[in-house]
Design a protein around this nucleic acid. Structure first.
Lengths: 203, 203
DNA sequence: CGTTAGATTGAACGCGCGGTCAATAATGGA
DNA sequence: TCCATTATTGACCGCGCGTTCAATCTAACG
């Protein structure tokens, strides 16, 4: 109900979700307080009342995005896969699928990522986010490394995790700009073929 | 010399290069005609005289960026490498090196890439650019495919090229936001280790 | 029911932007 | 040398933005 009282956290969430819709549609730089207020069905003054300044609203939005986006869901079905490389591939597939589903979220994520090249506060958060993302892949990367130590001589778990994250982000870079023509399945098949050799060597 | 006459193309180039500096520093969305004019040592009116509108200046800047950025330099030294996979790895290394050198160019590239999510004209160009980039990797991808047909059953050259481009862009995504901590060399070592198996199988 | 603190509104301010344009300067051909 | 063309300037307009703020409304409490 616009104009009616609401618990502070509830109202903040309402505004942030409106901001997310606006950011997805217009982009972060073109996001205006007026448009956010309109999208939330509230007045511009109220947005300022709750978030003080535009940049604080953006930081709050970033925090909300990072909180509500499950960084890397390693559910029990994936956890149960015995072979480390099968687990890695299952995760890869899962993350690829997410790209096609959470289109708007990915947009906003990259928008913040770019903002992070200029804004130190945003940059700190994006660094932490990417680190967290790599860390989530780390256990599997370590398993792969110990499975074939001589082949991966000089390779760190962090380095291997970076490559996997690179797979995903690099796929996103291509699919975001050209969602209809970019073939995620084909990408995955090719990536699988590259990784599959590992599996054969191991078994 | 500010205020003096100059050949049209020369002046346009001067303005565009100023625009590139501004875009690298401020970002595309915050690029203003005034700041570009100041960076070029010219008046705001002159920028409008040569480019009519702001969005046309941005398109001209994008075209200039794509023209002056060597998409994929396959020089004779790389061409001379007999083994397709060695060639691919050499190219990969070369492109990674470029990431650390052309920092500002990469920034602006990704800025346009993001703009392409909202602007159809920019999007068309970015699609073409990524396609061209993949095509440059295609010959080597095809060579890899024919070398091991049974392993890469169902994998297209386009798909494999996408993965290689994904390697690069995904690496860029991580290194742009965290240039000091992200270890490009380690990324390359890990990527090499993944690809190296192919080489061994083939020889 | 009256009071009070907090939530909410929308008009208003100042600023910086993109874009326009009349005035001026420089150029090159007649 | 003079003129027509073109390059160049900077003041100016209108707009939309972030932000402020006095006024109003709402809910909870004694």
């Amino acid at each position: 109900m616009p104009g009616r009282r609401a618990a502070e956290e509830e109202r903040k969430r309402q505004i942030i979700e409106a901001a997310h819709r606006v950011a997805a549609r217009r982009g972060l730089e073109r996001l205006t307080i007026r448009e956010v207020a309109a999208a939330a069905g509230l007045s511009t003054g109220l947005v300022h009342f709750h978030f003080k300044r535009r940049d604080l609203l953006l930081i709050a939005l970033l925090d909300w995005v990072l909180e509500t986006t499950t960084v890397l869901q390693v559910d029990e079905r994936i956890e149960a896969i015995p072979e480390p490389l099968d687990r890695l591939l299952a995760l890869l597939r899962q993350e690829m699928d997410r790209l096609t589903r959470d289109r708007r979220r990915i947009h906003v994520f990259f928008d913040f990522w770019l903002l992070g090249t200029r804004d130190a506060q945003v940059r700190r958060r994006m660094r932490a986010e990417l680190k967290r993302y790599r860390e989530a892949f780390r256990p599997m990367a370590e398993a792969v490394l110990t499975a074939e130590p001589e082949r991966f001589r000089g390779v760190t778990a962090e380095g291997l995790a970076s490559v996997v994250v690179g797979f995903i982000k690099g796929c996103a870079v291509q699919s975001v700009i050209d969602p209809t023509n970019f073939d995620v399945t084909q990408f995955l098949v090719a990536a699988n073929a590259l990784l599959a050799q590992l599996e054969e060597t191991h078994t």
